[in-house]
């Protein structure tokens, strides 16, 4: 009997510990949420609470009606869509090829791709800038799209090659026996099987573009050309104190799609991140 009470007490303590831990962990997000719903004037008061005293949607209204933010949203969507499309269009065939075919130079290229994957893109940013400037691609959306697809190309190729490797060859051979052509094998058999990997890769590229601010602020001038990430960055860098509630509201709005995507495919997240990278 006594052992049982002790066990119960232990569990209660553990539950309280986790409740406090979760709350502490979420404080920055909860605070932003609270600030985003409160009027500007209640901000600098010292008696702070997580439940806003004067509830208002004005900050969100400003996010959705503010001309700048909607332009940035449009830019982000455009860049993300173009980048995801080009990334998949070039890397799906390449990944399949590297997984299934053998050709001279294959191992060498793969080995170099691994090494390149560890190169932080930011280190060659100046070189990229200097290369793109003479051809007029700096301060041009196409320039950013090229940079983004190039940066994510190594990841996409590796990630999907890793997945193609796990699809058994027998399935393809069986289809060939039945008289399917190479193209049919790929479009009817392999692609449907590889769907999860394609989706995860597309989402990773999408999230990368959605969150990228350093290229976007360095390569683009003029706020009309900014993406959401770059705009949000600019929003907090200038006229700080006045726009903090709007910034908080914008942060929540920008994060929501990413949060939804994350929790929808949480299961694939770890494998999506590790399958192409490192194997033990």
């Amino acid at each position: 009997m006594k052992k049982r009470t002790r066990e119960r007490l232990g569990l209660a303590v553990l539950n309280i510990f986790f409740i406090i831990l979760c709350f502490v962990t979420l404080i920055p997000i909860l605070y932003a949420l609270s600030v985003s719903f409160s009027g500007t004037n209640s901000l600098l008061s010292s008696d702070f609470s997580f439940i806003p005293k004067s509830f208002t949607l004005a900050n969100y209204a400003e996010v959705f009606t503010g001309e700048d933010i909607m332009t940035w949203f449009g830019n982000s969507i455009l860049l993300a869509a173009a980048t995801v499309f080009i990334s998949l269009a070039v890397s799906v065939p390449a990944a399949y090829c590297f997984s299934r075919r053998s050709f001279p130079g294959r191992r060498l290229v793969l080995r170099w791709l691994v090494l390149l994957n560890s190169f932080p893109a930011i280190l060659s940013m100046f070189a990229v800038y200097r290369l793109l400037q003479p051809v007029g691609l700096v301060n041009h959306r196409l320039g950013l799209i090229i940079v983004y697809t190039g940066t994510m190309a190594v990841f996409s190729l590796w990630n999907m090659k890793g997945y193609f490797d796990t699809i058994p060859l027998d399935i393809e051979e069986a289809a060939r026996m039945d008289g399917a052509t190479d193209l049919q094998v790929v479009t009817r058999i392999v692609m449907p099987l590889a769907k999860p990997s394609v989706i995860v890769t597309a989402l990773m590229v999408l999230i990368y573009v959605w969150n990228e601010y350093i290229y976007a602020t360095t390569f683009m001038t003029g706020e009309a050309n900014y993406t959401l990430a770059a705009g949000l960055y600019a929003l907090q860098a200038t006229e700080m104190s006045g726009s903090w509630p709007v910034f908080a509201a914008a942060s929540i709005v920008v994060s929501l799609p990413v949060l939804i995507i994350f929790f929808l495919c949480q299961k694939h997240m770890t494998s999506g991140l590790t399958a192409g990278g490192v194997k033990g």
């Binding site: 070039v90 065939p93 390449a94 399949y96 060659s124 990229v128 697809t149 190039g150 940066t151 190309a153």
Partner: peptide
């Protein structure tokens, strides 16, 4: 088939 991807990597990375 793998050309476009590798070309992109060569140019941008």
């Amino acid at each position: 088939v793998s050309g476009p991807s590798l070309l992109l990597i060569a140019l941008i990375v």
